[in-house]
Design a binder for these strands. Structure first.
Lengths: 152, 152, 152, 152
DNA sequence: CATGAATGAGACTTCATTCAT
DNA sequence: CATGAATGAAGTCTCATTCAT
């Protein structure tokens, strides 16, 4: 039997994430209103009630995805905050690393990104908040003397 | 009867364009699926059957708007085709005039533009076709020796 | 043609009151949860969407019926308020008239009464308010010297 | 193994009566249709399949409760049947004892009583049967010469 | 030219109930 | 003894569209 000890209940989480992934895909490609629960569950080979076993409503899955995008993304930018006393020569490199990480994240999570940046009503908010956080990082870096911002 | 001579057809056309304009606004701001006929006619102070007096279906109004955008826009770019033998010194000015005309058109027709470039499923097609036509113009101009393209 | 001038739109109100009456009957006999919109419209020879043409939701028809009961009933008790200077000998007769009117109303509107007094969640409230109003009337009558209350 | 001798069947019966009691409470307070199996098992800290381990269906628990009410109640009234040759002076007392027992039963079993007398579709039947049995008792007592019924 | 009235089709959601472990 | 997971059936509600006047 070895490493196949899981059995009972093991598929609950699997079903949930399957549904979540398919939902992300549908929302990303068709928008909220054109995404049908019936399509999601059909693609997951499950029945409609199963969807409601794991999510409260269509709206709530959508919100969950938006939140997921927000938290993953802001974790990324937050981790980029530079600390005083750092080796000055490494600063530009770190900045570019963060931007690279962001674009890498976008590329690795295209559905989530589409939803977060283009589909949701909060899209504008998210973009603003993202810009602000990046800006703040840059500014705090600037204040720490790492470099000078030149606005044009 | 005297001053009641105007009438037949007059209000018909008025209602039609009113509906079309409101539809454009709704489609532009809410997308296809979230646009409801009931909202359109309410805003126009008309009834639902009246809508079907002028349009075959929701889909068909949408297509009509897409067509309108396409034709207006391509008329614009077509009219910019330069003819051989033109005064060479006026070329840069004409090119900038065309681009200005396009952006002016975008600004003057925000709803149509949103629909044509972002809402419709044909959006990608339209953008490609638009780029191509502009490119073609530039190239034909280039071939006519007006200038040299430098791709970077 | 004579007195049959009504035609267009005349049946809207008819459909509405038909649905309302049937709804009252169903709610009275089966309670809120066991009353199905599908049954109501079937009995009215109408389709489900028609129901929503006239009512916002199942809940809202129910509330409308409760309100109807309340207002009709309280109109009845309100109209019973005795005014000072009335012929004293007529007081007992008027009181009994009001009670008779109430019971007559109950008998004439059995569905509404069942809903108002037994089905709705507000039933207890309504009963209390009804008692209070009757009491108030009696007391004001008593204060006006029409008679003396003897509580036992 | 020692002190783990009690077990098999013990918890089973415990779960069963727990579910039955909660079901009674829910049915009594919300009626049949608004009572959900999911609520019952949640309150019992059990799962839905467990419910079906002990009962065949929602309907069947309901019927079981109705039967329970009926049998308990009719046991009560049956035990009140007076036998010929009894001491005549004790008759009124015994009658009042039976009525007291009935009302005591109602008070001690409020949920069952609500279900039996007000919720179930058989409510009317039960009430009739109850009246009849009480009546029969009275009549048989009357026939036995214990007293004379005076209907007004 | 216009509308009041009505509806078929289909979406989201809930619930009693079962399967497999 | 008990449960995690799943579902058929049915209910409420919405929307594009049509009929008859």
């Amino acid at each position: 039997m070895g490493q196949r000890g899981r059995k009972k209940g093991a598929n609950g989480e699997r079903s949930r994430s399957l549904l979540l992934a398919i939902a992300a895909d549908e929302f990303a490609h068709k928008g909220f209103s054109d995404t049908k629960i019936s399509t999601i569950v059909k693609r997951a080979n499950l029945s409609q009630p199963t969807f409601y076993l794991y999510f409260e409503s269509k709206e709530s899955v959508f919100q969950e995805l938006i939140q997921l995008f927000r938290s993953k993304l802001f974790d990324l930018t937050k981790s980029s905050r530079l600390e005083p006393g750092i080796d000055l020569t490494s600063v530009p490199e770190r900045i570019s690393q963060v931007l690279a990480a962001i674009f890498h994240f976008f590329k690795e999570n295209p559905n989530l990104t589409r939803i977060g940046l283009f589909v949701g009503e909060e899209a504008e908010d998210i973009k603003k908040q993202l810009s602000k956080q990046i800006m703040d990082n840059l500014i705090s870096e600037q204040e720490n003397g790492y470099f000078h911002l030149v606005l044009t």
